[in-house]
């Protein structure tokens, strides 16, 4: 008993220490910096100001936000449409095939996503694999302009984030008892009604979790629009990166980061509410 509880204390303690050192304290810096004045020499000056939050309402940043939300929203919708049937099938196939497919989904994580994005360039560019293949087939006569378009950005974002949509959906569909579907059929529900009245509401926590896990990173994945979209597609992530690395405006970058965090908290609260609504007992469980 004593040994067991000591192990628990150590395990929890190390994790807490890690999170405090590398997540909470740096984040507190960000929050503090966002309220300080900018200084071209020392980056920040210890004077309190709300100026940078006011700047977030400037037309420039609002335009970035609009574009960013649009990209992230479309990415999330595409990922959801692709992932939902896939997660469903994943739950209905034999164990062996399923393990293989999950492995295929996880293997790309072994390579840096930056490098994988460069690989996409090789696919998309004017004399890249896709264009060469289509030209060879005779389907097109001129190379398609894919690279540095929004299409390339969407493909890149969806490709990178799709597993984060599939996994929570897979978990929530796994918890859907097949007997509930049978019960609904038994009570006269058509296939459409089974989906809308039973499957969709019960897997809603997974859908929301997946959307959060795609939407929020999509706002911040600055290198994908950088590499695939050229200068035209700018995300909040690009804006933050520019403030820190290009413009040297740390407080403004921090303020934008805080805004992004608040957004995330809002989404997580929405998820908590939906999970509690469909839970089978107790508190809203995390997917």
């Amino acid at each position: 008993m004593v040994r067991k509880s000591r192990f628990r204390n150590v395990a929890v303690g190390v994790t807490l220490l890690w999170i405090t050192l590398f997540v909470i304290i740096p984040y507190l810096f960000v929050v503090v910096v966002s309220f300080l004045e900018r200084d071209s020499m020392h980056l920040i000056r210890w004077v309190f100001t709300l100026e940078h939050y006011r700047e977030l309402f400037s037309p420039v940043f609002l335009a970035v936000c609009r574009n960013s939300f649009f990209l992230a929203f479309v990415t999330t919708v595409i990922a959801l449409i692709l992932a939902y049937p896939f997660a469903f099938i994943l739950n209905r196939i034999p164990e062996k095939t399923r393990r293989f497919l999950i492995l295929l989904m996880i293997i790309p994580f072994w390579t840096s996503s930056l490098i994988r994005t460069y690989a996409l360039i090789i696919l998309f560019k004017a004399n890249g694999i896709i264009n060469t293949f289509l030209l060879w087939l005779g389907i097109i006569e001129q190379p398609l302009n894919i690279l540095y378009t929004e299409v390339a950005v969407f493909v890149g974002l969806v490709y990178t984030l799709l597993p984060f949509m599939i996994l929570p959906l897979y978990a929530s569909i796994q918890r859907l008892e097949p007997q509930l579907v049978e019960a609904a059929r038994d009570l006269g529900a058509t296939t459409k009604a089974v989906f809308l009245d039973i499957v969709l509401p019960i897997t809603m926590p997974g859908i929301i979790a997946g959307c959060i896990m795609v939407f929020l990173p999509a706002l911040g994945l600055f290198y994908i629009p950088d590499l695939l979209g050229g200068a035209r597609s700018m995300l909040i992530g690009n804006f933050i990166k520019n403030q820190f690395l290009t413009t040297g405006n740390w407080p403004l970058g921090s303020a934008a980061s805080v805004l992004l965090t608040l957004l995330m908290v809002l989404f997580l609260y929405g998820y908590y509410l939906s999970a509690r609504r469909t839970s089978t007992g107790g508190m809203g469980r995390i997917a």
Binding site: E182, A184, P201, T278
Partner: peptide, 13 residues
């Protein structure tokens, strides 16, 4: 025909 399931299969939501 209607069924009463072993696990009841009540709709949790």
């Amino acid at each position: 025909v209607n069924t009463v399931f072993q696990s009841y299969a009540l709709f949790p939501h």
